[in-house]
């Protein structure tokens, strides 16, 4: 397959991640969306790595993205639980203290 196909899949996954973040009314969907976006980036790295001679750099970067995602989801989950505990809700539309 050509590079373009991978990039297309990646772009689509990215768009779906954004839609997921924006459209759903549960804060956990934000996490799902973020994971999708990170996966889209991983596909891009792996694809460019493959089509650019197959070195190590892209793959190493994907490993770091996976590590980052793990750390991010652990922290984010803790924050979600805390927000729920604090505000008795997991709807981002109701957790609007950024407004103040």
């Amino acid at each position: 397959m050509a590079l373009g196909a991978y990039i297309g899949v990646s772009a689509a996954l990215f768009a779906l991640g954004l839609i997921c973040i924006i459209s759903r009314r549960n804060i956990l969907y934000v996490l799902f969306g973020v994971e999708m976006i990170l996966n889209a980036a991983s596909i891009n790295f792996a694809a460019f790595n493959r089509f650019n001679g197959g070195g190590l750099e892209g793959r190493v970067f994907v490993v770091f993205i996976i590590i980052l995602a793990a750390a991010e989801s652990a922290i984010a989950l803790a924050i979600v639980l805390n927000v729920y505990h604090l505000m008795k809700t997991v709807k981002p539309s109701e957790a609007d203290f950024l407004r103040e």
Binding site: I22, S23, P92, D96
Partner: peptide, 14 residues
């Protein structure tokens, strides 16, 4: 525009 809702902010950013 200043609603304090994260999702709206993300939309604007995008």
């Amino acid at each position: 525009l200043q609603t304090g809702r994260i999702q709206q902010y993300v939309s604007f950013a995008v």
